[in-house]
């Protein structure tokens, strides 16, 4: 991914900034300008929110054949995570072995390197998740 395109979304990727519909109260990640439930009633009422970063695993896969930029991490855990506020996202789960990961596992957001734009390019950072530290 090129740099301006990544940079534009760093608030979402660094800090889990999303939206809440001021009309129905539903949370969304990433940010949305319009609520898929309230349609026009939500226009101008979408509020910016920061998610806690805690959630649970809905489903996961152990990736053995990643895209080239992600090869250093393989095999790695890719998961769909449901944040405690409701929205779901796709992220890697780190500090956890493929044997330990389970559907329903509680996780929390951490800050990691996602990829590099080659050896000379920029480094992309953002959220990954790890098992929740009690």
């Amino acid at each position: 991914m090129n740099m301006p395109r990544f940079w534009r979304e760093i608030q979402g990727r660094y800090n889990l900034i999303g939206s809440r519909c001021g009309n129905c109260g539903e949370y969304f990640f990433p940010k949305r300008d319009i609520c898929p439930k309230c349609h026009r009633k939500s226009v101008g009422k979408m509020e910016t929110v920061k998610f806690s970063g805690r959630g649970r695993i809905i489903s996961y896969s152990i990736v053995h054949d990643p895209h080239p930029e992600y090869k250093d991490m393989r095999p790695y855990i890719m998961a769909i995570i449901e944040l405690e506020e409701g929205p779901r996202l796709t992220a890697q789960v780190v500090d956890c072995s493929p044997e330990e990961v389970k559907t329903g596992m509680e996780v929390e957001a951490t800050f990691r390197k996602l990829a590099e734009d080659g050896k000379e390019g920029v480094i992309f950072y953002g959220y990954k998740f790890r098992p929740l530290r009690k």
Binding site: P30, S61, D65, P66, H67, M73, L89, T90, Q92, L114
Partner: peptide, 19 residues
């Protein structure tokens, strides 16, 4: 923006459906 950049592959998403 919200799947591939975090390391998802097409197969990995199908794998999550499968699981």
């Amino acid at each position: 923006e919200w799947e591939t950049v975090f390391g998802a592959t097409y197969a990995s998403l199908h794998a999550m459906m499968a699981r």
